[in-house]
Simulated assay, not measured.
Amino acid sequence: MFAPLVRRDQREKGAFYLRGLLLAGRRKSMQPMAERLGIDHQQLQQFMTSSTWPVGDVRARLAWRAVRVVRPQVWVVDDTGFPKDGTASPGVARQYSGTLGKVGNCQIGVSVHAASDTASCPLSWRLFLPTAWDTPKAAARRRACRIPDGERHRPKWELALEMLDELDGHGLRPAALVADTGYGANADFRHGLEDRGLAYVLQAKGEMTAHAEGCEPHQPAYGGLGPRPLPRYRTRPLSLRGHVLAAGRHHGRTLTWRKGSKAAMSSHFVLLHVSLAGRFSIRWMRSGPA
């Protein structure tokens, strides 16, 4: 994992740190890990906080190793909350956490995971900085956390696209990418995936509107003055929930995808072809309870 590091002491400390993460024990901070390893915790502290080493090279090796082991059918874009008690951790703020299931004091990490039916492993990750960390009031906290001046708040979908580009630069691309509605409802994220030629299956909100299959935008004639008019649809779009209800239950199929802890996981799906913002393709839409 740390073979790209030039200095021998960095490789040794990196191996200590990695071993500390893998050993038994719930607490993975420096001192508990050092006690389990039988070394001075300052070695781990110095390696992680002040030693300069190429993070990108290590991440690339980790990503390739994960892909070889997991053999993913899909990549998953998601974000995870890490509950915190104080205000000193970088990026900590009161924000929604899926881990907590509510708004709480936490950090948010955005990740791209390789996933199969039996395993999952992060290929890359980014710390999400809330807008509060861009204000003058956060200057002292930014200095204490050593956050570079160029690192500012960016939306989660933008961090996800950046990671996909980074992984593509390492020669890694997903067979398909999946994400929940936090990403699927974002048109910029969908367009970014399509511009990169990536296949995807994204959750969408039922309130989102779309045009039915066969509807083509009309190009109004140009009158010769001002900017040329953009193409527009002659009919109003319908919500995705409305499209499913209009198709009817007889249009759907009950599918079982795997066996859960209690019973087989199945639901009723309707396959429709709709146009969302002019750039949306075939999707399965679940119309019944999970």
Rank of each mutant, 00 (worst) to 15 (best):
A3C: 06
P4C: 07
L5Y: 05
V6P: 00
V6Y: 11
D9V: 05
Q10T: 03
Q10P: 02
G14I: 14
G14E: 12
L21S: 07
G25E: 08
R26I: 02
R26W: 03
K28M: 13
S29A: 14
Q31A: 00
Q31F: 02
E35H: 12
L37H: 06
H41V: 03
F47H: 01
F47Y: 02
S50G: 04
S51T: 12
V55C: 01
A60D: 04
W64K: 07
V69L: 06
V77N: 08
D79T: 13
G81D: 11
K84Q: 13
G86I: 12
S89R: 05
V92H: 04
A93K: 06
V103N: 13
N105Q: 15
Q107F: 11
V112W: 03
A114Q: 10
S124I: 02
W125A: 14
W125L: 15
F128Q: 07
T131I: 09
D134K: 09
P136T: 02
A139L: 05
A139Q: 14
R142D: 13
I147R: 12
D149A: 15
E151H: 06
W157M: 00
E162M: 12
D165Q: 14
E166S: 12
L167C: 08
D168E: 15
G169F: 03
G171F: 02
L172G: 03
A175F: 01
A176C: 11
Y183L: 09
D188T: 10
H191L: 04
A199E: 04
Y200N: 03
M208W: 01
H211A: 04
A212Q: 06
H218N: 09
Q219R: 04
A221Q: 15
G224I: 14
P227R: 14
P229H: 13
P231E: 09
P237R: 15
L240H: 00
G242E: 15
G242A: 15
H243G: 08
A246L: 10
G248F: 02
R249F: 08
H250N: 00
H251I: 08
G252P: 12
K259T: 10
S261F: 03
S261E: 12
M265G: 01
S275E: 07
S275G: 02
G278F: 00
R279H: 13
R286L: 08
G288F: 03
